[in-house]
Every structure is written in structure tokens, then in C-alpha cells.
Design a protein around this nucleic acid. Structure first.
Lengths: 162, 162
DNA sequence: TTGTTAATGAAAACCATTTTCATTTATTGA
DNA sequence: TCAATAAATGAAAATGGTTTTCATTAACAA
């Protein structure tokens, strides 16, 4: 049986993101473990408070302040995306799991605030985006690390109410 | 010599957006005129306070509250776009002038916050976006009215500081 | 194990935005 | 042209998500 990285996961070794932390000189703490645990077990776009509540269930000692600070850190090192869907509170999402395959875009209903993730057309989009990124990077000497694509409109429910 | 509304604009006729207001049942007031005036004379992404300050120069009686309320209204009727560039204050931009040709996307520097508008590649993007919108609209029964595209990364100045 | 320093939690501060409410003003009908 | 009336406004207060402060705790290198 092969060893190495593979084994570490089957044997429940350190989570995949520990390396990212150590590499950047950050400490691995219980609140941080808990927050990443929560984020990695949901597909939803959680707000800081929702994350706090979920973490609080497991570790009541963890405070909201730490949740905010940790999220800021995670966004900074690129482990988490921060979104604004227009409801005056930020939403957070793991940018990619250990398998690194989560990228999606959003449909935001401007009437009820519902957010739909979609991955359809992502391939075509990504191809174009890469060309665009390349061109923009060159023209503006900009180092592009990320992009945000959101479509706004009315979801099926809100359409029928009109 | 003709009197009435016409005169107020030096025979230039009512601004192009008056129709949009009357049609939706909203009144045309001095603060609203002033706010649209300010928005139509800049290419920048102004914050509510910046708009307030600019309006204040012309009409000191106009308050910040009214600016917020008017912007909300303008966003609602689609005359203005509201953006979030991550600096904890919303930015506003006229969605289209009378000639309706202003659409662009943004490059946002995550280090210094600089925002660059670009219209390059817009044609190719728009073509793909239309296909995507069509597909998404069908699949999710979503009526898409708008989209947001932003690229994040480091601008030339911040790159060289690294 | 221990010393150093980052990380934390509670409470207070912050600040963009929203709400309240009394007053003003644009519009409509006489 | 002039009220009538309901929308719009401004000042001040409230709101609420997020950040800061500061004393305490805990991660981790030696």
C-alpha cells in the first residue's frame, strides 16, 4: 500500500491546510481548526455570525471576534472567499477543498436575496476568463489572482409574484 | 419666451432621465437633480459621502440622508449601479448615460484598493455572457437583468513593492 | 519545560447606513 | 392660480455588522 500524502489522509493525519499555515508563519489553534472544520462541512455561504454559532456549538469558548479575525486571515492567505450579496453582511466560502474543485459563480435574486451557485458554462467561461486575464495582466501590468462573477435578476419564485 | 420646466434648463429640455422618474411615479426634486448631475459628470466610483460633498457644494441644504435615499431609489430603478470594492463603503456609478454606452468591468487591487475600469475584451466577454445568461435563465428560470465582473489581484505599483 | 510572542475573548468603539418624525415641497385637481 | 395631499426631505438618533483595545491565554521554538 502506497504511503505519503495519501496515507496521511486515510490515517487522519493533519488536515490538508496545516501546511499553508505553517508555511506562512501562523499558528494552528483550536478556534482556527474549528472554523475551518465548519467551513469545510458546508456548501452554504455562511455569514460570520453563522460561522460563530456553528463553532460555538463545538467550542463555546470561541468568541465572535476571533471568528472575524480568523476569517480575515483566511481570506488574506487565499483559503476563503469573501462575498457580498447585498444584504449588508459578508459571506464566506472555502475557496477550494483538498481536491481543489469547487469553483462556481453566483446567481443573486435582487428581490428575495436568494443565491444560487452554478457551475454550468464554467468551462467556457474559464477559458475566456483566462484569455481575458492574460490580456488584462499584460495591458495593465496587473497580477490577477482571482475573479468574481455574479448575475443579478429575479429567481423563479419572485418572477411569478410580479 | 417659453416658461415652465423648459426654462429651468436653458432651453435644453428636461434631462433624459425625467421620463424614467415620471413613468415610475417618482417626483423630480432638486436633490435628485443635483445627485444625478454629479453622477453624470464623473467617471469615478463615488461613495455616498463623496456624492454628498459634491452635491453640498451646489446645494448646501441637501442632507446625507437624502443622498442615501436617492441612491437607493436610483439603484432600484436601474439608473445606477452599486459596487462593493471591499473597502466597507458602497460605490455608485451611473449605469448608462443618455447614449447608454458605459458598460465596463473592474480590476481591483487587493493591496491598495485601486480600481481600474476596463472595456477591453468586453466584446468577447459580452458574447459569452449572453450565451451564459441565456442558458442560466433557462435552466434556473431566472430573469437576469445585470451582471458583475471583477478581477482581483495586484496592480503594477503594488507588484513592485513585493 | 520554559520563554517569547502570537492569538484570544469581552467589552467598548467604530462608522456606514437606516430609521424616526416633524417639516417642507412637488404635484394634482378645483 | 391656489389649495389639498401625499411624497420627499433633513436632523438627530438608532442600528448593526465589523474592528479595536487591552489584559489574559496558549502555541511552539529552543
Amino acid at each position: 500500500m502506497p504511503r505519503g500524502l495519501r496515507m496521511r489522509h486515510l490515517a487522519m493525519g493533519p488536515p490538508w491546510w496545516h501546511g499553508r499555515f505553517h508555511g506562512a508563519g501562523f499558528r494552528i489553534t483550536i478556534p482556527r481548526e474549528a472554523i475551518l472544520e465548519v467551513l469545510s462541512k458546508t456548501q452554504k455561504h455562511l455569514s460570520a455570525e453563522e460561522i460563530y454559532l456553528a463553532v460555538h456549538r463545538l467550542h463555546p469558548a470561541v468568541g465572535l471576534t476571533t471568528v472575524y479575525r480568523t476569517l480575515e486571515l483566511l481570506v488574506h492567505i487565499g483559503l476563503v472567499f469573501k462575498f457580498d450579496f447585498g444584504d449588508s453582511r459578508a459571506r464566506y466560502e472555502l475557496s477550494s477543498g483538498p481536491k481543489g474543485a469547487r469553483h462556481h459563480h453566483h446567481l443573486v435574486c435582487t428581490a428575495c436575496g436568494r443565491v444560487i451557485d452554478y457551475t454550468d458554462f464554467i468551462d467556457e467561461e474559464v477559458e475566456l476568463l483566462q484569455q481575458t486575464e492574460k490580456g488584462l495582466a499584460k495591458k495593465y501590468n496587473f497580477k490577477i489572482t482571482n475573479h468574481l462573477i455574479q448575475f443579478y435578476g429575479l429567481c423563479d419564485k419572485c418572477r411569478s409574484k410580479e
